[in-house]
Write a protein that binds this DNA or RNA. Sequence first.
DNA 1: CTATTATATCATTGAGTGCTGATATAGTGA
DNA 2: TCACTATATCAGCACTCAATGATATAATAG
Lengths: 118, 118
Amino acid sequence: MLLTSEKLELELKAKLFRGFSDTSRLSILEALRGKPLNVGEIVAATGLSQSNISNHLGCLRDCGLVISEQRGRYTYYRLADDRIDSLLRLVEEVLADVAKGVYQCTRYEFPEGANNGE
Amino acid sequence: MLLTSEKLELELKAKLFRGFSDTSRLSILEALRGKPLNVGEIVAATGLSQSNISNHLGCLRDCGLVISEQRGRYTYYRLADDRIDSLLRLVEEVLADVAKGVYQCTRYEFPEGANNGE
DNA sequence: CTATTATATCATTGAGTGCTGATATAGTGA
DNA sequence: TCACTATATCAGCACTCAATGATATAATAG
């Protein structure tokens, strides 16, 4: 039904979206929308554990969504592309309209109290 | 670290992205970019099984990404919002630049032969 | 060199979730 | 009504993957 090249692009697209589809990664990306941060600053901004952050950053970097830069013993991360910010903004717009539906979607519930660093 | 309302919006955003983060759902959405289709047509277009399609359609509908409309014994589905098309297009653009990185990201591999209706 | 701080890696565990096959529901025509 | 087609639902399995805690690496300070 799908040619191989189309199937490949589909997988790439899904993979890219998957980078955004987790609250931890999303909060990392949100934190980086302002300015580049090092890992410690991201930990402080999100309240997630260091190893968790580091794992997600590894994925985000591999997937090309963020870029890392060593400065002394700190590693600074920033969004890899301005359009990532556009993408997040566009989703916020769409969300404003479909929020009710998304909120009522009980198919894939978020676990109670997960990702809760407060 | 995050206020409750911010945390909620984060979860909604992640949930919305998750709608796009699966090759099956993505190929359904791609199929619907052209024109509204009924379930049988979507099955033909994607090569996925009927029950699989139906499950994903249920999720996409609950999440507000598609809208369903009964016509006789057929159920037609269409994209819920023009910006969903914009979103997909924007991702294609970003993908063109970061594709290499995404392709090389081996952290979350797609299973061999999965979603392979050909 | 040694201690300390910053970040990365890895194994494990447990929850999430995509797929299938069987079955149920519902609309249509004879 | 009965047969047929279109779609939805559900249980179960297999696989994915996020989180943790322990450990490793690396940079700097003293």
